[in-house]
Amino acid sequence: MKIGRETIPTTAISTSNADTIVVRGKDLSGELIGRISFTDYFLLLLDGQPPSDTRRRVLDATLVAIAEHGLVPSVQASRMTYAAAPEALQGAVAAGLLGCGSVILGASQAAGELFAEIAEEIDGGKSLEGAVHDVISARRARREAIPGYGHPLHKERDPRVEALFGVAQEAGAEMRYVGIATAVERALPEVVGKELKLNVSAAIPAVLLGAGFPLKALRGVPLLARTAGLIAHLLEESEQPSGFALSYQATRQVEYTGKVPLGFTQEGGSS
C-alpha cells in the first residue's frame, strides 16, 4: 500500500562506495574527521550548509545550557533502568530520552512554534504587542499552556536565559525572536493573570531561530544535549550506584489508598 507520491526512497545526507564515505557531499575521512567539531558536523548534517560562526556559537551555548539538570524524572528512569540491566547502556539512555516530552525537554519545540506563529502575525501587518496579545489570548481561550514560561525553582528569570541571550547577541544572531519571547513575558500578567518569567525552554528556540536553525529540528537540540548528560549519569551509576536507592526511596514514600482484604495488615502495623 502506497501512502504519498514517492515510490523510491531518497536521501541527500550520505552515500558510500568501497573506498569513500560521503556525507553531505564531503569525504568523511578526508575532509571531516579531525577537521570539524561535532557541533559543526551536526549543523552540516541538518541542512548541508557550511556552519557559520554564529550558528556554531549559539548552538554550542544551547547544548551546554540544557545537557544537565540533576536527577529529573528522565535521569532517574535512565539510572534505574541501568541498575536493572547494566549490560544495556543503550536501553538506559533510551529510557531517559523516552521520558522527554511536553513537560521535560519538549517545551523548546512548542515555544519555538509559538514564536513562529507570532512572527507570522507580525509579517501579516500586526504590531509586536498586538500579535503577542492575540496569539496568547487565543491559546488561553483554547485552554492551552504557554510553553517556556515559569519555573518551579527560578521564580525570577531562569539564569540561563540572560546567558543565552548574551551569546546570541555577541555572535551576531538576529534578535527578532528574543524580542518576541520578551514581549510574551511582558504580556502574560495581563493575559494569563500571573507573572511568569522566561525559562531556558523559551530561550533556546529564541536564540536558535535567530541563528537560522530549522524550526522542525528544535526538539532535537535538548535531546542531543541530554544524551550527553545521561551518558555521564550512567557512567556515575556504574561506579557509584543510586538506581536501586532511587527506587527504594520512591517505594518508601508510596501510600496505598486502595481496598485490602479483611484482616490484611500493612507492614509497619498500619491497616
Rank of each mutant, 00 (worst) to 15 (best):
R139G: 13
T227G: 04
G34D: 06
A145P: 08
S52W: 10
L71Y: 09
Y82I: 01
E236P: 08
I21H: 05
V221Y: 06
A116W: 04
D27W: 05
A85T: 15
I66P: 01
P86A: 09
L43A: 09
F213C: 02
R55F: 03
R139I: 03
G101P: 06
A211G: 05
E6C: 07
L164I: 07
R139D: 10
L209H: 02
V22A: 01
G269N: 10
R226L: 04
S242P: 05
V200E: 01
I118F: 03
V103M: 08
T182P: 03
E144I: 05
Y149D: 05
I180T: 03
L43D: 02
E170M: 12
A138F: 00
A94F: 07
A163P: 01
A85G: 07
I180H: 01
L98P: 03
I146Q: 03
A183I: 07
L89T: 09
L196P: 07
E255D: 11
R35Q: 15
A77D: 08
L235N: 07
A116P: 04
R57C: 01
S242A: 13
S37T: 15
L209W: 04
G148T: 08
T251D: 10
A171E: 06
S137E: 09
T182G: 04
T81C: 15
V58N: 00
F165A: 01
Y149N: 07
Q49S: 15
S271I: 00
R55G: 05
R252G: 08
E117D: 12
T182S: 14
G96Y: 00
L234S: 00
R56F: 03
R139W: 00
L224V: 12
K155M: 10
T62Q: 10
E255G: 07
L59Y: 00
L218C: 10
K126I: 05
S102H: 13
C100M: 15
G212Y: 02
G112N: 00
E117I: 02
L208Y: 00
A163L: 12
G96A: 07
Q76C: 12
E174S: 14
A217F: 05
S247K: 13
R35A: 11
G91M: 07
A65E: 02
R139N: 13
V75T: 15
T257C: 10
Q49D: 13
T81R: 14
R157M: 11
R55D: 00
H151V: 02
A232D: 04
S78W: 00
L97K: 06
R219C: 06
V23L: 13
A245Y: 10
L234P: 01
R160H: 02
N199C: 04
L235Y: 09
E170F: 13
V260Y: 09
A141P: 11
G148R: 02
A181T: 09
V254C: 11
T182F: 00
S127G: 15
